[in-house]
Amino acid sequence: MNRVLHFAKVDLTLHSTFRPPFAAGDRTVFDVDAEIARETVPMPKLPEDRFLCAFNHIFAGGYSAGYYSYKWSETYSADAYAAFEEARITANPDAVKRMGKHYRDTVLALGGGTPPREVWRQFRGRENVDIEALLRHSGLTRTA
């Protein structure tokens, strides 16, 4: 998780606030990567680390500040799965089957013809995703 969050933060920073260096001593993309690494990775990066030179996702892969979508989509996936978990814990044996039909009738059936927020609202009954589901599924809360 830290690795994806690190890449996402580097991607967003480089595409939003970074200005290319014009003089010796100006901040480089490698400096940005190292600064963010101090917040996001467990071990310091080596000064000669040049991973960004091969990180095609954010420079040549069409992401351009979109790398965060990996973790963002995982958040929605965890919350959708949580809907089935919630259905499973009810006393009604048909609850999971009904949730599957509800998922089919909202997320799958509405697809791209309905704004995503509206699809989510119809499926989960709220506009926003619950990030607690991702944290729980990732083992980052006390109730796993």
Rank of each mutant, 00 (worst) to 15 (best):
D33W: 07
R104L: 05
D49I: 09
R136D: 04
M1K: 06
F7K: 09
K97R: 14
P115D: 10
R50E: 15
V10T: 06
E132T: 09
A133K: 01
E39S: 14
G111L: 00
A54E: 07
P93R: 15
K101S: 05
E39V: 04
P93N: 12
A87C: 10
Y76E: 03
V96Y: 04
V129R: 00
M99H: 01
E127G: 12
A24Y: 10
V129G: 06
L5S: 06
E74F: 04
A78G: 08
T13R: 06
P115I: 05
E86G: 09
D49E: 14
S73D: 06
W120I: 02
L110A: 06
A82S: 13
A23M: 14
P47W: 07
N92Q: 14
E86W: 00
G66A: 11
E48R: 10
L135A: 12
G113Y: 08
C53A: 11
V32S: 02
V119Q: 00
D94T: 15
A60R: 09
D33Y: 01
E74K: 02
L46N: 13
A133V: 03
R19H: 13
S64L: 05
E74D: 15
G111N: 10
T17L: 07
W72S: 14
P115Q: 13
W120M: 01
Y81Q: 04
F51N: 08
F123G: 06
E39L: 14
H137S: 08
P93A: 15
T114W: 01
V10K: 02
R88W: 15
G111Q: 00
M99T: 10
T114F: 01
V10I: 11
N92R: 15
S77V: 07
T141E: 04
G25D: 00
S16R: 10
R50N: 14
T106F: 00
F51T: 10
S73Y: 11
P47I: 05
A8Q: 06
K101M: 08
V129K: 02
G112F: 06
I36F: 00
V29G: 03
T143E: 11
K45R: 15
E39G: 02
T143C: 05
K45L: 15
Y68F: 13
